[in-house]
Nucleic acid binder design. Structure first.
Length: 446
RNA sequence: CGGGGCGUAGCGCAGUCUGGUAGCGCAUCUGGUUUGGGACCAGAGGGUCGCAAGUUCGAAUCUUGCCGCCCCGACCA
């Protein structure tokens, strides 16, 4: 993409309504545009990142054997009356009426909807487990939206639902998602800590929040430092292994959020030098809730003994739009965003420092089309701005690697390579560039 | 929902106390000179001062009502 064709409304100054760094940087880099409180439009740069994150989440769900579906944003109130949540949910739920004055709602979550889908077609234990997920926009009319996309009212979420014959089977599904979440966040370059969470009426150990450590996180978290090195091999864990064992390795470490924290418990379970306190952002939440919805909504199957049994369910969320903000919170510097390679909106930023110079233009055009031929997603700054403008803009939007061509480099027939994260600079002869591109593609450096 | 703050040009702000017909920086447009870290010179465009009613000869400024946005708190992926 040529920058001259790219809709990228960057701001030199920080809009006054943006308080936290990710919100500021998303506004300044032209990723989003606020529509109303907690509701945003996604502009090209932001949308590219959102899609990349979405696709990683999707890929990992598929690999875990979960089926993608797509449920509606607008749901009938009747389903929610069946589960009893129509009255329980409160003002967070946006209630609307259609032209026939039927009561509808903009879905804040999808347990009812998915349970309805399940009960219509699954009647036998032989069809279990059933694992479904979708990636859809949700709306929760928060009392106070804030932090940009980190706590918006409208947000994109992956939510998955499991249906199993009994509690033991349900646990297996739960573990599957547990592992898939570790893999998912790992792939995005994030260190996510699974923290035991409130389990509600079911009890047991079947609820975890996945929290990213971030200086600017919302809540205080306490944990055993050793859990950070636990997921070093998580990519290699196959789903047909005994997952309980793997999950148990994580559960062995003490973790607690602010509300649950207890200093005595901390001291008893964790050696002083391993005790860590940090700030965290919740990016995922998994829990199982037994037969709560299946009983209310009559979702049952026949067992091998020919008896009716209510299915045991679990639900598993990942905040996709929130992750965009969360990643920026954990990866930026004073100049702007530093995207992890896998979610970066472009692989490479190509900077033409003097677009009034025909010779430099020709070199840049060649490099640009060669990169495109190699399937490298490149943003080519072909505009007539001053060098300073180009440098700061490219630093702001945070592409992992910059290729810079100007008078200085063509004298020696070189291209300047600059890594956004480390600031490391090196020079490559123009004729060696194809080799260099092959190398970085192979090494996943972009 | 309780407490606080703010709405003046695309963005950041001054002007409001003390009423007299709107200004600064950046951005934008035109011409020219520039081109390795947010350039320079000359010129130009852009605002019913959030909306409505009221007070007044006269309202961005005073009064009342409404709307929107942000921050702190309680609550959530």
């Amino acid at each position: 993409m040529r920058l001259s064709n790219f809709f990228l409304p960057v701001l030199k100054e920080t809009p006054s309504e943006a308080e936290i760094i990710s919100h500021q940087l998303m506004m300044r880099s032209g990723m989003i545009s606020q529509s109303s409180s907690g509701i945003y439009s996604w502009l090209p740069l932001g949308l590219k990142v959102l899609k990349k994150i979405e696709n990683i989440v999707r890929d990992e769900q598929n690999k875990a054997g979960v089926n993608e579906i797509l449920m509606p944003t607008i749901q009938p109130a009747d389903l929610w009356k069946e589960s009893g949540r129509y009255d329980d949910y409160g003002k967070e739920m946006l209630r609307i009426q259609d032209r026939q004055e039927r009561e509808m709602l903009y879905g804040p979550t999808n347990e009812e909807q998915v349970t309805d889908i399940f009960r219509r077609s699954i009647k036998s234990y032989k069809d279990l487990p059933t694992l479904l997920y979708h990636i859809q926009w949700k709306f929760r009319d928060e009392l106070r939206p804030r932090f940009g996309v980190m706590r918006g009212r409208e947000f994109l979420m992956k939510d998955a639902y499991s249906f199993d014959l009994d509690h033991d089977e349900c646990k297996k599904s739960y573990y599957k998602f547990f592992i898939s979440y570790l893999k998912t966040f790992r792939r995005m370059g994030l260190k996510a800590i699974p923290m035991a969470a409130e389990t509600g009426p079911i009890g047991g150990d079947l609820s975890h929040e996945f929290v990213i450590i971030s200086e600017t996180g919302e809540s205080d978290i306490y944990f055993d430092k050793r859990i950070l090195s636990e997921d070093s091999k998580i990519e290699d864990v196959a789903y047909d292994n005994d997952l309980e064992q793997v999950v148990q390795q994580y559960n062995n470490y003490y973790t607690a959020s602010d509300e649950k924290f207890d200093q005595t418990e901390f001291d008893n379970n964790v050696a002083k030098d391993q005790q860590t306190k940090s700030k965290g952002i919740e990016v995922g939440h998994i829990f199982s809730f037994g037969t709560k919805y299946s009983e209310a909504m009559k979702a049952n199957v026949l067992t091998s003994e020919g008896k009716q049994a209510y299915v045991h369910m679990g639900s598993y969320g990942i905040g996709i739009s929130r992750l965009v903000g969360a990643i920026i919170e954990s990866s930026h510097d004073t100049k702007g965003i530093i995207w992890p390679n896998v979610v970066s909106p472009f692989d490479i930023g190509l900077i033409n420092l003097k677009s009034s110079d025909e010779k430099i233009n020709n070199i840049c055009n060649d490099i640009y089309s060669n990169l495109l031929n190699e399937n490298v997603d490149v943003l080519y700054d072909d505009k007539k701005d001053n060098p300073g403008v180009k440098f700061s803009k490219m630093d702001l939007i945070g592409l992992p690697l910059q290729m810079i061509i100007g008078n200085k480099t063509i004298e020696t027939n070189e291209v300047e390579i600059k890594y956004r994260k480390s600031g490391e600079v090196k020079y490559i002869k123009v004729e060696n560039l194809p080799n260099f591109v092959q190398e970085i593609k192979k090494s996943s450096a972009i």
